[in-house]
């Protein structure tokens, strides 16, 4: 636990010292909000503010994974520190868990940035749900994205083109999350893939919480997220074992 906290604390410092990351959590939400606002400005339905907020936020959350956790891992590999971390007595997933959580906590600030822009710059009213709902959803986002991010980190750990592939995944993920169009309009096989993405359930959940009377405990999205979190949790354990073997037996850690 102490390792996780130290890792988390120092990751805050490292990420914030990187201007690209500051861009991702502050400037990018502003830019995405502006872009989507202009694209959708003819859209004549009442809750356009909420619609913008949900979509921009989820896009940013994904970007934070792409630009932070996974590229951090590639950077660590290049800097050679991955070896020192791996060869320490602490389990690898605790060390990187701390880093991923730190990046996500920072990334969740982009929600606030989007909210402020939509509410005050574009003057589109967003009625926030009650504080308990917000806190519950915040933690749901955090744990589901932490497990997803760690799972992907393992998946791409030994891939020389990790950054390439996660960049390539950006727009497919947006599509499969229901940002541009309803998932029901997608072919059935793509719908199945979208069920495996926390972003799909998060988009659904965020849309629901703006309905003040909605009880999130009855939301299938909450349970979908919890089940996915558990699945990715198991995935992390399995991947951890596979990766350890790959590193130790195939000696691939320092290949980059």
């Amino acid at each position: 636990m102490r390792v996780l906290l130290t890792s988390l604390r120092l990751q805050f410092k490292q990420s914030l010292s990187r201007s690209t990351y500051r861009f991702v959590i502050i400037i990018q939400p502003i830019l995405n909000t502006i872009l989507l606002y202009f694209i959708l400005s003819n859209k004549n339905f009442v809750n356009v503010g909420e619609y913008l907020f949900v979509n921009v936020s989820v896009m940013n959350l994904w970007s934070s994974i792409v630009f932070s956790s996974l590229s951090d891992l590639t950077r660590e590999k290049r800097m050679g520190v991955l070896g020192s971390n791996f060869a320490s007595p602490v389990k690898f997933q605790w060390i990187y868990g701390g880093k991923v959580i730190a990046n996500l906590i920072l990334a969740l600030w982009s929600f606030a940035v989007s909210y402020l822009i939509i509410q005050y710059v574009f003057d589109l009213n967003i009625v926030l749900p009650n504080v308990y709902t917000l806190i519950t959803v915040y933690f749901l986002l955090l744990i589901s994205f932490t497990t997803l991010s760690l799972f992907l980190s393992y998946f791409f750990l030994l891939n020389r083109q990790a950054i390439f592939w996660i960049n390539v995944l950006e727009y497919p993920i947006y599509l499969l999350s229901g940002i541009a169009t309803s998932i029901q309009k997608l072919p059935w096989f793509l719908q199945i893939i979208s069920w495996l993405l926390p972003t799909k359930w998060i988009v659904g959940l965020l849309h629901q919480i703006f309905n003040a009377k909605y009880n999130i405990l009855t939301s299938a999205n909450v349970y979908g997220l919890l089940i996915l979190t558990a699945l990715y949790g198991i995935g992390i354990i399995v991947m951890n074992n596979i990766m350890e073997r790959k590193i130790l037996v195939e000696g691939q850690l320092e290949v980059y």
Binding site: L10, K13, Q14, S17, R18, M79, G80, V81, G83, S84, A87
Partner: peptide, 13 residues
């Protein structure tokens, strides 16, 4: 272990 060169450190810390 200590490997020679400038790697194995977090440069931004």
């Amino acid at each position: 272990f200590i490997y020679g060169g400038e790697r194995d450190l977090y440069w931004r810390l």
